[in-house]
Design a protein around this nucleic acid. Sequence first.
DNA 1: TCAACATTGACAGCATACTGACTATCTGTA
DNA 2: TACAGATAGTCAGTATGCTGTCAATGTTGA
Lengths: 147, 147
Amino acid sequence: MYDVENSIGFLLSKGYQRAWALLREEIEQYELTPPQFALLAFLWREDGLTQTELSEAGQIDRTTLGGLIDRLEKTGLVERRPHPRDRRAYQIHLTTRGRELEGPLSECATRTLARLTNGLTETEVSELRRMLIILRGERTVYDFPAC
Amino acid sequence: MYDVENSIGFLLSKGYQRAWALLREEIEQYELTPPQFALLAFLWREDGLTQTELSEAGQIDRTTLGGLIDRLEKTGLVERRPHPRDRRAYQIHLTTRGRELEGPLSECATRTLARLTNGLTETEVSELRRMLIILRGERTVYDFPAC
DNA sequence: TCAACATTGACAGCATACTGACTATCTGTA
DNA sequence: TACAGATAGTCAGTATGCTGTCAATGTTGA
C-alpha cells in the first residue's frame, strides 16, 4: 500500500508549509509574505535586474514574479524603472525603505531557521541543505534522455 | 549578507516545486494534481472519513480540503455521503474508479520518487526523510512557551 | 428543557504558482 | 530596409493554501 505520509514529496510540502508559516510569523509586522521576502533578498544582493533576470535568478515563474513586484511596489519597497536600452523591459530597484529592511529582515530569517531546525544538529542542517540542493537542481544525462 | 539561495526555506520551496512538477507530469493523464493524488492516497488507506478527520489526517487546511473534494467529486473519484449520525458532516467515500486508480497512481508516485532522488543514494533518501519528518512536526516546549 | 458553547462545512477574499495567449518591442538576416 | 522570429511583460483562467466569517447542527451543564 502506498504510504503518502512518509513520501518525500508529501514531507517536502509539509516542511515547506511549516517554514512558510514560521517565517510569516516573524515578518508579519512588516506586512510581507515569504516569497516577497525572498525577492527582496535577491535584490539586496543585486539591484536593478529586469523581471526576466530576477525570474531566472530566483527561479520564480515570470507571471508570478509580475504579481510579486506589483505588491512590493504598492507597499513601497521596490520600484519599476524603464530599461535604458529596451523599451519592453523594466529594471527593478529597491527603494530606500526596501534597502533599510535588509538588517531586520535578515534577523527574522535567522530566527526562523533556528526555530525550524530546532530538532536537528548543525551537521544535520548542513546535510539537509546539501541534499535539498541536489533535489532541486539535479541535472544528469538521465533527465534529458533525448539529448 | 543574507544568502537566500542556500537557506533551508528557499530550498524547501524549490524542492517542493520540483517534486510537484515531476508528479504532475506522471499523473497528468489522469487529470489529477499532486494534492488531489495525496488525498486519494489517504482514502486508499481509510475510506469514509469526514472532512474534518481527513483534514487532520492529511494535514490539509479545512477550507482547502473542501475545494479538493469538490474537484475530485466532479471528476468522479470520490463522493460525499451524509453522515449517519451528524447532519452537519459528510463522509468522503472513494468511487469504484477512485479505488481502481490505486495501482496505476502508486506506480506513478514510485517513478516520481526515483526521478526526484536520482542524485541521492538510498541511504541519503532515508536520511532526508528522517530529517524532513523532524522539520515538519518538531514540537518541543519551545514551540509553546505559554503552556 | 434550554441557553451557552463548540463543531462542521461553506463562502469570500487574498497571495502564490503555473499555463496559454497576447501586445509591444527587439534582433538577425536577406 | 523589411520581415520573420525571438523576447519582455501582461492578462485571463485555474488550483492550492490560508484567514475570517457565517449558518446549521451538536453537546453540555444549569
